[in-house]
Amino acid sequence: MSLFDIMASILVGINVTMKVTLYGMLYAVPFAFVFGVAQHFTNGIPRLIVTSIIEFWRSSPVIILIYGFYFSLPGLGINLSAMTVGAMVLGLNIGGYGSQAVRAALQALDPGQVEAGYALGFRRLRILYLIELPQALAAMTPTFINQFIQLVKGTSLVSLVTLADMTFLAKALSQIHYAPAKIYTALLIVYFLMCYPATIVGRMIERRVSRGREVSHDL
């Protein structure tokens, strides 16, 4: 089997990989904004609750969450497909990281912006989406792109709960044809080609955000 043939067989699984990524985003983006903003707005006990939910998704190992939800939920009478479990767990984990970028970007803004909004007679929520979020968006973009890459890479974990994504197919292939070097090299290359463009875009944006502070000392 040539490297090209191997890649072709692996790429059959790309639709699963992309589906999990896409559905994962549907969990991650709303979670990041809702919980990031909630953490920004709340104080005391409500904030503690918001923070606990974020920390649960952010600080638990994803691999354990995937196994845990996939295997335990049926026992509790909840039947979710492997696709749903994978997308939800990966998405909320990434969303947890994203929420911290949202909160940090909002908190970095000059408090005078909110005061100016009040002075103009806006209500709090309107200030949020007319004044705060548009300004904070630039600061969160690099983190969002990095987290998107983490999500794409994270989808490989759904192979552990029987979804036939690219990693699953590669593993199956290596059990039929004993050629692990070729097969796993091909798999690495495919993921690299998927994620590298995002890495480049992320670096470009990061450079733009931090323009003027660029220095490099050669050693």
Binding site: I149, K153, G154, T155, S156, L157, S159, T167, A170, K171, Y184, T185, L187, L188, Y191, F192, M194, C195, Y196, T199
Partner: peptide, 12 residues
């Protein structure tokens, strides 16, 4: 290294 999954690197 950063553009490929840890899981696949471990398998590799």
């Amino acid at each position: 290294i950063r553009s490929t999954p840890l899981l696949v690197q471990i398998y590799f």
